[in-house]
Design a protein around this nucleic acid. Structure first.
Lengths: 209, 209
DNA sequence: TAGATTGTTAATCGATTAACAATC
DNA sequence: TAGATTGTTAATCGATTAACAATC
């Protein structure tokens, strides 16, 4: 039985990963929790606690080796394995996601897009083909698909969730601004852009008082 | 001096707003914290505590009036005033944001996009013009701009932040996957899509153990 | 009035920070 | 070895949940 790691910790891991990646690019070899805490604006204690949920990656009297820690966090986040990803909905947002070079670097390989719109079908985005939605079943049966990104219109999301789950896909990256209910063995990550904008708005009006 | 509301609470407000909007659409007039807690999968206690940070919106023995509560939360989030928004970077992501009908309904009015790419300049997205970035200064000086959305390439973000702050814009909605440092009177909301994808990845590989 | 449900205080739980012994 | 810094335990702080008096 694995120890359950709190969500607060998980949410911070990608941020550590980003900062360590920057340090690595700048050629920095080692860093102490104290130095990192200043750069990232968190406490050194929190950094050490967070990391020790997963193992002792540092060394007393030395600190952390940047490259090693970067790789370890990558492994924790599952970035050392390739995730094949399909995008359902090849509108602007779907195409924007397909265009992110970064994702591929981190092991997320976009292998196909799907849409209903004749105008985009058979076009390619960065070499990846947009297929008609009718081909989804066959495609998923003959290709390993790890993640389905939902960038289609909101109202189509629930039915599509059912479909891709029935096809055996176990992960949904959901932009459809609707909370989908899924079985326990399916993982879902919701991106609520309008929630984010509302939070910004709150902070704008709050400051005016 | 306003009471400071914890971030945990703020993050939940847009979610309440969404669910209440759904209830409203379904014609439901009143709801108790207990009923809502079942729908939203949180505790009734948390709902009452959250709301009472802002005021007593309910009535003993009755519960909450859906329409009233929806409107009150809208006010808290600043959705009752219009925010003029410009989008800097009219690539797929910028155009996707410009295409969201929902934003306008919530008081976010996209008034212009800006780009450096000749191919898109002077095109329109849902009736909104894409202007050359050279016109930014003049545009901001002669129009009220409340929010700048950053959808340009990552490396251009820091310089652009400086520029729009010097022009007097006080809010940034940042998609540039880079943390920008801004003065205290500027509010910023970061959307880290790759962090979100990494969290999904973590949950995928975790379940495999 | 009796029943229902809020608003709010008190109790609990979990997350963050501080402190320090272990150790490189 | 002495100095530095981790890993980890203990203390504190804040957020969540429970309980209940107030009141519609």
């Amino acid at each position: 039985m694995n120890k359950v790691i709190s969500n607060a910790v998980i949410r911070r891991m990608p941020r550590y990963y980003r900062y360590l990646g920057d340090l690595l690019d700048r050629g920095i070899e080692r860093i102490s929790s104290n130095e990192l805490s200043h750069i990232m604006n968190v406490t050194a204690s929190q950094i050490r606690q967070d990391l020790n949920n997963f193992g002792g990656f540092g060394q007393q009297g030395y600190g952390y080796n940047v490259k090693k820690l970067y790789e370890e966090i990558g492994k924790i986040l599952g970035l050392d394995v390739t995730h094949n990803l399909i995008i359902i909905g090849a509108g602007n947002l779907g195409q924007a996601l397909a265009g992110y070079v970064q994702f591929e670097k981190r092991g997320f390989k976009i292998i196909s897009l799907f849409d209903t719109n004749e105008d985009v079908i058979n076009k390619t985005v960065r070499g990846v083909k947009i297929r008609p939605i009718e081909e989804l079943d066959d495609y998923v049966k003959s290709n390993k698909v790890d993640i389905a990104a939902f960038t289609m219109p909101r109202e189509k999301a629930p039915a599509m969730a059912k479909k891709i789950i029935s096809l055996g896909i176990k992960a949904i990256w959901n932009f459809a601004n609707m909370e989908l209910s899924v079985p326990d063995d399916v993982v879902i990550e919701n991106v609520h852009l309008s929630d984010s904008l509302m939070q910004l708005s709150y902070n704008i009006v709050k400051d005016k008082n």
